[in-house]
Design a protein around this nucleic acid. Structure first.
Lengths: 238, 238
DNA sequence: ACCACAGTATGGTCAGACCATATCGAACCA
DNA sequence: TGGTTCGATATGGTCTGACCATACTGTGGT
C-alpha cells in the first residue's frame, strides 16, 4: 500500500458518473416528467466523456423507466423524462423468476397482500366519494364477453389493477401491474384448470359492490375468498 | 403499405434483441445464479452484433440486478449471473421520488402494508418454529447502543428488514429493503423530531415478543401502533 | 395556400483501437 | 524442489470517428 492515500476499493465507471450527474441535474434544476435531457452528443461534450458512456447511462435510465428515447428531430425527439416504473418492475420480476431466485409462491403471496390492501383503501376512498370505479365495471363487462382464457385473464388483470388504481397509491398500482404481468401465464393456466368462471364472476361482483358501498372489511374478505377460489391449491384452508 | 408483409410498428433495437437472446439462453440452458455468461466480444460475434450493443444489454441486466461484471481474467471474471433485486428497486424508487412522480406518502403507506404482512407471517412461521429471529434481537441491541439518530435509524431499518426476512418471502424482503433505503433521510428526521426513542423501543420489544410468541394478530397491532408512534403526523387517528 | 425537397439534429449501430486489471504460465533463480 | 518474477493473455472499460435511419425544419417553387 502506498503512503499517498487510498484509492477507492471500487472504481467508479464513467457511466455511473454520468448517471450521478444527470440525477443531480434532475434534482437541482427541478426537472420533471415531460422535460427533455440534452442530446447524447451534447451531454458527452458537457461532461467530458464519450458518447458510449452517455449511452450506457441512458440505457440504465431507460431500464428504470425514467427516460424514453425518441429518434428524429423536433420537440418530441431525444431523451424525455417519463415515469414508467411498471415495465421496469415487470422486467425485474420476470428475470428473477427466470433465474429461479424468486418462486411463484412468493409472487402470489405478495399479490394477495396488495390486493387486500388496495381493496380496503379503494373502499375507504369510495366511502367519501373519491374513488373512480368506472374501470372496474368496464373490466367486468370485458370478462363477460371473453371467449378464451387468455381474454378472460386480460380483463381480470384489468379489474384487479383498477382496484389498485382506485386505491390512490401509484406505487402499489405499479407493483400490482408488474405482478400480474409476470404471472400472466400462470393465471391463464389457473383459469383453464378451473373451467367454470361463474364463481369468479360472483366474487368480482361482490368485491365491486363492497368497494362502491365503502365497506372495507367486506372488500378484504371478498378479495381473500376470491383468491382462494382462483388458486385453490395455494389456499388449502379456504 | 407494401404487399410483402408488415414492418413492426416499433423497431427492435439491437440491444433489445441481445437481451432477448440472453434471456432465452438462461431459460433453455437452465443457467442460474453463479453461472457465467460468455465474454462481451464472444457474445457479439456469436450474435453478429457489435460489442457496443452487447454492452448496452449488459448495462440493462446489471441495472436489473441480474448480472455482475468483473474485469480481469479467470473464473471470477466476466459477467456472472447474480440476484440482487434490492439495489434495482432502490434505484427505481429513488429516481421516481426525485422526479416527483411518487410521493413519500405512497412509499410510507406501502411500507405500512408490508410491515403488517411481514410481522403476521413471521409470527406464523415462528409459531411452527421455522422463523429465524436472531437478526431482530441483534438489531434491538444495536438501537440501544446507537448514539445518533442516523445510527438508530440504521439499526431500526435492520430490525424491520429482519422481520421481512423472517417472513420467508424474498420479494417482500427486497421491497422492504428498498423502501427503507429510499426513505432513510425521512426516517432520520422523524427520529430527530421525536427526540425520545423509549416509546419506539417498547414497541420493538412488543413486536419481537409477539412474533416469537407466534401471536400474529398481536404482531400486526403492535406494528400498526409502532408506525403511529414513529410518524404521528401521518396517522392522526392513532 | 400548398407541396416537394434538401438540410439537419436526433438516436442507433458499427469497427477498431487503446487502457486497466487480474489471472495464468513459463522462465528463472535459490 | 520450491518460490519468484515477469511476460502473455483474457477480460471489461473507454474513446474516437464514422455511417445509417428517422423525423422535423425551412426553403423554394407552384
Amino acid at each position: 500500500m502506498d503512503g499517498s492515500g487510498w484509492r477507492p476499493v471500487k472504481r467508479t465507471r464513467t457511466f455511473e458518473d454520468v448517471l450521478a450527474q444527470i440525477e443531480r441535474r434532475i434534482a437541482e434544476d427541478g426537472l420533471t416528467v415531460g422535460d427533455r435531457l440534452p442530446a447524447e452528443r451534447q451531454l458527452a461534450e458537457q461532461l467530458g466523456v464519450s458518447r458510449s458512456s452517455v449511452r450506457e447511462a441512458m440505457r440504465v435510465l431507460e431500464t428504470l423507466g425514467v427516460v424514453s428515447s425518441q429518434v428524429g428531430r423536433g420537440p418530441d425527439a431525444g431523451a424525455v423524462l417519463t415515469s414508467r416504473p411498471d415495465s421496469a418492475l415487470t422486467d425485474l420480476l420476470r428475470l428473477h423468476l427466470g433465474l429461479a431466485s424468486l418462486e411463484m409462491r412468493e409472487v402470489i403471496d405478495t399479490r394477495h397482500m396488495i390486493e387486500q390492501w388496495a381493496a380496503a383503501h379503494a373502499a375507504a376512498l369510495a366511502a367519501s366519494g373519491r374513488a373512480d370505479t368506472s374501470g372496474l365495471t368496464a373490466a367486468l363487462a370485458g370478462m363477460d364477453a371473453a371467449r378464451t382464457a387468455e381474454e378472460f385473464v386480460e380483463h381480470d388483470t384489468a379489474f384487479h389493477c383498477a382496484i389498485a388504481d382506485a386505491s390512490g397509491n401509484r406505487l402499489i398500482a405499479a407493483i400490482m401491474r408488474s405482478l400480474r404481468d409476470s404471472m400472466r401465464r400462470y393465471s391463464v393456466e389457473a383459469v383453464q384448470r378451473l373451467g367454470d368462471t361463474s364463481i369468479l364472476r360472483a366474487d368480482h361482483v361482490r368485491i365491486l359492490e363492497a368497494i362502491e358501498g365503502g365497506r372495507a372489511d367486506e372488500a378484504v374478505r371478498a378479495v381473500s375468498e376470491h383468491l382462494a377460489h382462483a388458486y385453490p391449491s395455494l389456499f388449502p384452508a379456504g
